[in-house]
């Protein structure tokens, strides 16, 4: 483990989460699966922010605060999107993103 610091290892893990989440977002068909992928990407973002805050001269509390905001944002986003998914499944009977074409209110 010469040359690679802890910070870089943490950033690699969070990058991997980001890349896998992006892959899943494009690959998944159902809306729930896409939402799961978005959650994974946010997970990686939080990990990256905390690692940067704790392992660099930057303020540690600031990094934790930013991750707290990411958490609140993710909670709000999940609540709204799951409500939208329920409405979509009630109206169309399925949640396949390929087959959703109409967006009438």
């Amino acid at each position: 483990m010469n040359g690679i610091t802890h910070l870089e290892m943490y950033q690699f893990v969070s990058l991997m989460l980001l890349g896998l989440g992006l892959f899943g977002l494009v690959r998944r068909r159902s809306l729930v699966g896409m939402l799961i992928s978005v959650e994974l990407m946010l997970n990686g973002a939080g990990l990256s922010i905390v690692a940067s805050g704790q392992l660099t001269p930057a303020s540690a509390a600031m990094g934790q605060l930013a991750t707290l905001f990411v958490m609140g944002l993710a909670a709000a986003e999940v609540a709204l999107i799951l409500a939208i998914i329920i409405v979509v499944s009630r109206r169309f009977g399925h949640i396949e993103s390929n087959n959703l074409r109409t967006m009438r209110g």
């Binding site: 690699f12 990058l15 991997m16 980001l18 890349g19 992006l22 892959f23 977002l25 494009v26 690959r27």
Partner: peptide, 13 residues
């Protein structure tokens, strides 16, 4: 999808 994910990971690394 795999290519986009891999490109992001490579650029980030």
């Amino acid at each position: 999808a795999a290519i986009f994910g891999a490109i992001y990971m490579a650029v980030g690394a």
